[in-house]
Design a protein around this nucleic acid. Structure first.
Lengths: 161, 161
DNA sequence: CCTAACCTTGACGTAGGCGTTAAACCGCCC
DNA sequence: GGGCGGTTTAACGCCTACGTCAAGGTTAGG
């Protein structure tokens, strides 16, 4: 049972803090990306700090990796299994059950890692190219300016400005 | 007028080489991301190698940066202006027209650069975190294995540690 | 008790990014 | 000149990731 004194948040606060809309939070819950939060008497959703972290995590996966919510669901599910695994203080039978879960989690994280790795490499490459182009542009700009000053010294047809 | 001997490609070949569908190519054209290609007598589209590059460029922007096609359109348009600017051998009036175009292009590329930079930084951070987690998992896995061997030797005993 | 601010479920709408026919047309080979 | 495979436009469809009402229930303050 969760600590009664823990600071729970209503959906509006979570929305504000995470930068997503309330609709999005309900949507994620619908889609199984967020586990159904606890409720207060009247039915209002009560989120924990953990849930906030989860939302932020989801958004990072979306924005940075650009993976679909379906995939993100798989990822966060595997992580959820891990939390449980860490929480259980050795219900002690089924060690290889635990091992299987751990292996699954490792797979997931390795998957994420390889995606991130590949993307960072490609982006570093792109970054270098962009830098190169900016240099080139700078050169051109200088050439343009020189060209102009030469025309100022030896004016051709200058349009009235 | 383009070189008549140049190797032009039909839509199917371009699709195959770029990994996008024919539908996507026509769609990009519709949306103004690809300039309308030349046609052969019967009306079939004829793409140049340049067009292929362009498609690949578009896809990189999509996949890596995750920007919307509308934005990508702006980007490729600015680049198109640059091509022209570089192609014109000094129609020599309107130097500051050129300068404005160049400045616009610089803005665009700087925009891309800052996006890429920010994303790479965030991804490097994420990468580090993932690496950390993989290490942790590895430790856990070892602990699990040790736990198992100890139980095999002295069942029910708690490991000192 | 009343009201404002917040929340609930449900249902429908939408924007982006293509997929999928359909029906006719083109090019090439035998 | 008939067949076959690639291509054309046009139109409708679809999925994702939410946005946007609508109609009502809840909570806290005065």
């Amino acid at each position: 049972m969760p600590d009664v004194d823990e600071a729970y948040l209503q959906i509006g606060e979570v929305a504000e803090r995470t930068g997503v809309t309330q609709r999005t939070l309900r949507f994620y819950e619908e889609k199984g990306l967020l586990r159904p939060p606890s409720r207060m008497v009247g039915g209002f959703r009560l989120y924990s700090e953990q849930d906030v972290k989860r939302v932020e995590h989801i958004r990072r996966l979306q924005d940075l990796l650009g993976v679909a919510l379906a995939e993100i669901k798989e990822m966060v599910e595997a992580e959820e299994v891990l939390r449980e695994l860490r929480a259980q203080y050795r219900p002690d039978s089924a060690i290889d059950e635990k091992r299987r879960q751990l292996e699954r989690a490792i797979d997931v994280v390795q998957g994420q890692y390889s995606i991130v790795k590949q993307k960072t490499e490609q982006m570093e490459e792109m970054k270098a190219q962009l830098k190169e182009r900016l240099k080139t542009f700078d050169r051109w700009m200088k050439e343009l300016n020189e060209l102009e000053t030469k025309e100022a010294v030896a004016p051709g047809l200058r349009p009235p400005k």
